[in-house]
Design a binder for these strands. Structure first.
Lengths: 242, 242
DNA sequence: AAAATAGTGTCTATAAGACACTATCAT
DNA sequence: ATGATAGTGTCTTATAGACACTATTTT
C-alpha cells in the first residue's frame, strides 16, 4: 500500500470503497448480511459490509475480497449494482462507493471482521419498512439492491444462486415466493420451469421432502453456472379474472 | 478547486471521472456522440465525452455538466450505467469512471469542447462491429450502454426520450425499429401502444406525414416526464409459427 | 387408508403476430 | 383514381393462471 505521497492536482481527493448487499433466503425470509459498526462515524449502527479498494485491485475483486473477509464465502454470484458518490454522503471526506449485490446459495454463519463488532442476517423487508438506523446512505443502497434482485429473478437465472447446486422445484419456487412475497401455483410453476429453455437440467435423482412425507421431488441443476438472461420471463403471480 | 495538497493515507490515490454515452436516432441509425481526443493518451482516437468530477459535485451533476459543455443540451434523460475501475484502464493513473447513458430527443449539432478537437455523431452498430480505435475501455462501455438502451426500450417508457415532446406513433415505432434493428407491424404496434397504460396520451391534434402524402397521424405526448417502468413490456418482433 | 407433497391435464382469458381491410390525405 | 400512410378487425397461436386430477411417498 502507498504510505505517504504528495498529491499534486487540480482535482480533489477521492476515496473509493465497495459495499456489498449479500442476500440469502433464510427461515422463509429474504435476509441481508449487515455489520454493526465498531468505529465512528455511525458507531453502533447497522451497515453494509464493505471497505476501501486497494491500489492494484479491481472493483469486483475488492468486493469479492471484502465478502470473503466477512463471510468466508468465495464462490458466489456477484454483480455491480450502482455507484453512490454524493458529496457529504460520508463525513470523513469525498467517498465514492461502488455497491455490489451478492447472492448466497445457503445460509452461512457470518463471522465479525476487523471493522465490525458483529455481523448478522437481517430480514430485508421489515428493515426497510422500519426505522432502525442504517449507516451512511446504506438504506438507499439496500432498497436499490432489493429492487435489482427482484427484477433479476424475473428475467435471469438468478434464482438458482439462492439454492444448493442440486435443488428441487419446490426449493426454487420457495425462492421466488420469498423474494417476491407472492405465492405460486405449484403445478404451473413446475410446467413453466421445465419448459423454459437453458434454465434447469433434471438430474434423474430424487430428494425426499423435508417434512418426511409426500412424493420425493426430482432434483435439478442449473444448466450453466452463473447468471444468464432467460428467453421468456418468469412472471410474478398475478390474479387472473378467469 | 484544490491546488496542491498532501495526501496522507494508507489508501491509494483515485481519480474519479464521468463518461457519457449520448444516444440519438439520426438518419435511420442509432448514433452515439463521440469526441476526437486532442491530447495524450489516445490522441486522435474516438472517445466518449466525459471528464473529472469536481470537488463538491455529485456524479450525475458532473455528467450533466459535461453533457452541457459538449452539446449545449440541458433537459435530457440521464441514467447511471456502471462504473469501470480496473487498474491500468487509464495509463495516467488509477482512474475510476462512472459511466452514464443519455438519450437526446432530436439531433443536436454538437460543438467541440476544450478537451476535444472534434465532436461527432457516430452510428453505433457499425462502430462496434468495426475495428476503429476507441480510447481507453470506451468500446466496452459503449457496448454495455447499447445493451442497456435496448433493454430499457422494452420495459420502460425510454422510447419517448428519443422523439420530440409531441410525436406520432410512426415516429415512436421508428425508434424501436432503429434501436432493435427489427421491423414492426404498424397496425399491431398501434394497438399495443394505445393499450399500454401510463405510456402515451393522445393530444387530439394531428400531424401530416413527412412525405406529404397519406393520412395525417394523431399525435401523442408521454403521459409523464422522465423514464418509467411499463406494466407490460414492448416485445421485440419475433416470427410466430402461425 | 390418510395425509402430504410432486407432478399432469385441461379449461379460460389474454395477448402477440399475420394480414386483410377501412380511413384520410396529396397529387 | 392512384398511391401512400394511419388505423381497425379478426384469425391463429401461444401462454399464464385456475383448479381438478393422478402419482408416490410416510405414517
Amino acid at each position: 500500500m502507498v504510505d505517504r505521497v504528495t498529491y499534486t492536482s487540480e482535482f480533489p481527493i477521492f476515496y473509493v470503497t465497495v459495499d456489498i448487499a449479500i442476500f440469502t433466503v433464510r427461515d422463509d425470509e429474504l435476509c441481508v448480511l449487515l455489520v454493526r459498526r465498531k468505529g465512528e462515524p455511525f458507531r453502533g449502527a447497522l451497515a453494509l459490509p464493505g471497505g476501501f479498494v486497494a491500489p492494484e485491485e479491481g472493483l469486483m475483486d475488492a468486493a469479492r475480497r471484502e465478502l470473503g473477509e466477512e463471510t468466508g464465502v468465495t464462490d458466489v454470484v456477484l454483480e455491480q449494482l450502482a455507484t453512490y458518490g454524493e458529496p457529504g454522503r460520508d463525513p470523513r471526506g469525498r467517498v465514492v462507493s461502488v455497491a455490489h449485490v451478492a447472492v448466497l446459495p445457503r445460509q452461512v454463519e457470518p463471522r465479525a471482521g476487523s471493522d465490525a463488532s458483529e455481523a448478522l442476517w437481517v430480514p430485508v423487508v421489515p428493515l426497510l419498512a422500519g426505522r432502525r438506523q442504517v449507516a451512511f446512505d446504506h438504506r438507499r443502497i439496500l432498497a436499490d439492491a432489493l429492487e435489482r434482485v427482484r427484477a433479476k429473478l424475473e428475467y435471469t437465472t438468478l434464482a438458482t444462486a439462492f439454492v444448493a447446486e442440486e435443488f428441487t422445484l419446490s426449493e426454487l419456487r420457495h425462492v421466488y415466493e420469498v423474494v417476491w412475497g407472492a405465492d405460486f401455483d405449484a403445478g404451473n410453476f413446475q410446467r413453466k420451469m421445465r419448459r423454459t429453455e437453458d434454465f434447469i437440467v433434471e438430474t434423474g435423482r430424487t430428494k425426499p421432502s423435508p417434512v418426511g412425507r409426500g412424493r420425493p421431488a426430482a432434483t435439478f441443476v442449473a444448466r450453466s453456472p452463473g447468471v444468464h438472461p432467460l428467453g421468456s420471463p418468469i412472471t410474478r403471480a398475478q390474479p387472473q379474472r378467469g
